[in-house]
Design a protein around this nucleic acid. Sequence first.
DNA 1: AATTAAAATGACAGCGCTAACATTTAGTGC
DNA 2: GCACTAAATGTTAGCGCTGTCATTTTAATT
Lengths: 350, 350
Amino acid sequence: MAHTERGKRQPTPDAKTARRGGDSVTLEDVARLAGVSTITVSRALNYPDKVASKTLEKVNRAISQTGYVPNLLAGGLASRRTRLITAIVPSLANMVYAETIQYFSKPLRDAGYQVLLGESGYPEASEQTLVSAILSRRPDGILLTGVNHSADCRRLLLAARIPLVETWDLTPTPLDVVVGFSHERLGAAVADFAVRKGYRQVATLSASDRRAKFREAALLGRLAELGIQEISCAEVPVPTDLRRGRSGLARLLDQGFTGGLVCCSSDTLAQGALIEARARGLHVPQELAIIGFGDQSFAADLYPALSTVRIDRPRMGELAANALIARIDGRPLDSPVIDVGFTIIERETT
Amino acid sequence: MAHTERGKRQPTPDAKTARRGGDSVTLEDVARLAGVSTITVSRALNYPDKVASKTLEKVNRAISQTGYVPNLLAGGLASRRTRLITAIVPSLANMVYAETIQYFSKPLRDAGYQVLLGESGYPEASEQTLVSAILSRRPDGILLTGVNHSADCRRLLLAARIPLVETWDLTPTPLDVVVGFSHERLGAAVADFAVRKGYRQVATLSASDRRAKFREAALLGRLAELGIQEISCAEVPVPTDLRRGRSGLARLLDQGFTGGLVCCSSDTLAQGALIEARARGLHVPQELAIIGFGDQSFAADLYPALSTVRIDRPRMGELAANALIARIDGRPLDSPVIDVGFTIIERETT
DNA sequence: AATTAAAATGACAGCGCTAACATTTAGTGC
DNA sequence: GCACTAAATGTTAGCGCTGTCATTTTAATT
């Protein structure tokens, strides 16, 4: 007792190594084994060309001998770079977004980033809460789906001063960068297509999704301009699936829609409509024409093959990733607004 | 110069606040504003019931005034708890896994965890590399798909001493906990089903996926036992899609398969086969019967409705999440091996 | 009011790493 | 060999938080 100084914890001799956990190997262990300082090990890991090759070799040997796995929490805290990118999508249940993530992730992975996923489609938690949770991991960048965010959300995002990419939509005033296409122009283009092909009756089958409704509104608007009178509309909840496509078409048919073009807000809905038509013995496209949206991989392989509107998703994902990386690296961008456009793909259902 | 002590950096008066970045609000800022110590703010955030309600109020006010967003890197480093769970799936392109993630995430989110996603289906990066990258974020737990991991991988995982859950398969010797079903029993059950229904010809249409091939082998084995002679097999690459389902059936038909039951390793493949049958004018199930695997949401809505083998994926995800949470909290598990079973769902294609 | 226990708060060190310098070593030309 | 530059390595001080005590305040009991 006598030599224990007032209150101060008396560290045991091996305190440094025996502390809590004590399990995992640290930089220091590697450094000791390699006979260099910790910073040299750090450099060997992060800037290998700043270290003499002999040293590098020693360090690498020590790393594999100890089975060292770097601690990115500590590294990120010290360097303020986490090598983490967060992608926020409405839902993984929608194949289209799951795919977007993939295309987006690839270039990021190659650039040494990991992608953390956030799903915003959970009504029980606000986007605000999600964003806050995400920011607490201090990602180097964030991908957002859509351009409509609550005021609180925008504030939070902007205050974090993190590179941001919004996708799947377009706006002249992005938070930072936006990579997408115009739902308005797309809706109008589909209306033009309907008229050009001579359909006198048009129906819409849309998910209750902000962007889908926006396309529908543009389509309806253009149709009115072009003098098309016979219009039916059906709305189904998200996420879209075959059942909703089937029941949606059933509803349209009950409503008095007797044939013409059905414009669906997703290929899945369109496929459901196709199935329902088949179950009812309606011939597509003779008695009923269908056009989808997205050009998902299955569209071309349906029977009959589905006409749809293609969004170049691989390109959109890649452009978004590259824009984000450029912003992180502080490189300038040609434009903060990148339009990837769309293409109407005509197959057998129209 | 005179009073600058040898080499030591001379910190400017406001060095503490003006340091690098200096941008983001820290616990200290909040504490100062609330007139308490940092640890009290920390407690107000993490253990609110350990703080007097008046203090809590002051702190919360200070937090919203400053727009403070906690830094989980720092918190995780200090507490050794990251509230991060990593899920490794083969690919998001496969709807089945994307869904699994969803079911798995829900209970975790409710328990205050965030899910980081890792895709192992990229041949350019070994599972080893992936696991290493994941471990460097020090997740509190890991979900793995499958039970076959390289020796290096197992070593790495085990050395990390992190709760682990393996899924989508079963093994008597899990790394930690396994939640899944027996592919062997499933394959045999499908064979029994084929025989019971009186099919004399059986074909398999399988993805080149370890578990799919395992089911197929079990099916073939049982078929042999039961004396079924006429068997055709087709293999397609992953990920499975409609095209591969169509071309797979086409191949079987070319090979001399003239009708009977086609056992597909995924519902998507089955759907592709169904489409191909329709395109060729083959009546299902009269001329050709089809059974899938997975009972994905679309299976019941196809026309004709697809017979398949149901895996209770929501339950599997939930059980996996709960097992992981139990392990993290140090609670004992009834058994480290949890079998969720399977059910053959007979609809219209058989 | 005095005594004791419980609740609330605080001081301090350190989690494992890296930025920013300082210092040492190797390389170059004359 | 010497001066000088560039390359390689090391020292130090945090990054922003929480665990572990120590201390103070409040409540409960006699």
